[in-house]
Write a protein that binds this DNA or RNA. Structure first.
Lengths: 193, 193
DNA sequence: CCAAATCATTGATCGAAATCAAGAAATACA
DNA sequence: TGTATTTCTTGATTTCGATCAATGATTTGG
């Protein structure tokens, strides 16, 4: 049932059988169709999501109605509006399914129980958020100090598994470019080879 | 000696007297003059830094020699190149003192001992990195989806304590603008009022 | 206290990405 | 299978921030 989850868990923090049993009690499953929405801006984010299968994305919509994709989450990844999750303030992000997906939900109450009752769960959480912070830092640096061409190449190399599954205009949105600009970036890169 | 540190610590995770004694053994102090460098790109980041007094900054230098400030750390904040700290790969960041400063250093070995020996230290670390992640996320969103004018106003409102202590060209660098552009942003905003 | 360095502003020009517009290609689905 | 929708590309134009250049203001430290 949660084998894949615990496999990923175990990569960051060793998990004993008794912990597995405890943690399993606090997880729930959900199936999603492509485009199903898990979180709307303005709602409080009451769960974190772990993707077992498929892909989710988090994005904002700015005052001009433009989407800005903040994160993709293919299988094995976690996603949430952590700001809203921790503060219980309204979310600034939307989260929806890019593909038909199967996910695990962890409610905030359950998350807190697990933090207090399972030491390895706390360690896992710490490792997870640390890795997420470092990845975000690097992405931010790259987007601040590289050309669009470099950002695109970096993204394709770093996340081929995402790049090959989502439409180009979503990659453009993730990189902070318009689809037209990304198309021209691709042409430039193809020509340069 | 470490009163201020434990005060901040306690805001995120309650700390008992015995833990304080243990943790104190693993902290060391350092005084810095303005412009003193704590970390160079290419070196391994072997410590995290807590600012007791003064202000530090972390920044990258891109291939054109332009600085991009990643973070300011006034008193009460932590700073490090966490990517390098955790992986022991060469740092991509520089860290130096924006003002004369007094800091606490925590070496990686000490950090790991504390994680394993003090539960509240682990909780504190988790809370700290979570807050940092959320702050970075919000900064990233704001810089991707707002006008320079909005980014600047947000920054001034959110961090007046930083904004009033650093030269404008550093704020420009933090926001990803040239000093000239920031100067014009300020004029626009002043006129609009 | 003064000279030197740093910092901020302003103007003119340039360039890269956004926007606007249209059409072609691919995909979905009924 | 065929139609509708989504996606991608290409061209023309505009816009906004970067760059280049110069000057003025402020800070620093010898």
């Amino acid at each position: 049932m949660f084998d894949f989850y615990f496999e990923k868990f175990n990569e960051k923090a060793p998990v004993a059988t008794t912990d597995k049993a405890l943690i399993s009690k606090h997880l729930s499953l959900k199936s999603l169709k492509k485009k199903d929405i898990l979180l709307q801006e303005g709602a409080v984010c009451k769960h974190t999501f772990f993707v077992q299968k498929g892909m989710l994305r988090a994005y904002t919509i700015d005052e001009n109605g433009n989407e800005h994709i903040v994160q993709f989450a293919p299988e094995g990844w976690h996603i949430a509006d952590l700001y809203s999750f921790f503060t219980e303030e309204p979310a600034t992000l939307f989260i929806d399914a890019v593909e038909d997906s199967e996910i695990i939900l962890i409610a905030k109450e359950d998350h807190e129980i697990l933090l207090s009752q399972s030491h390895c769960y706390e360690t896992f959480t710490r490792e997870l958020i640390t890795a997420a912070y470092v990845a975000l830092q690097q992405r931010f640096n790259s987007s601040m100090s590289s050309s669009p061409d470099m950002c695109y190449s970096d993204f394709m190399n770093r996340y081929p598994n995402i790049a090959n599954r989502v439409p180009q205009h979503m990659i453009a949105s993730y990189l902070g470019l318009t689809p037209e600009t990304l198309s021209r970036v691709r042409r430039r890169i193809a020509k340069a080879k």
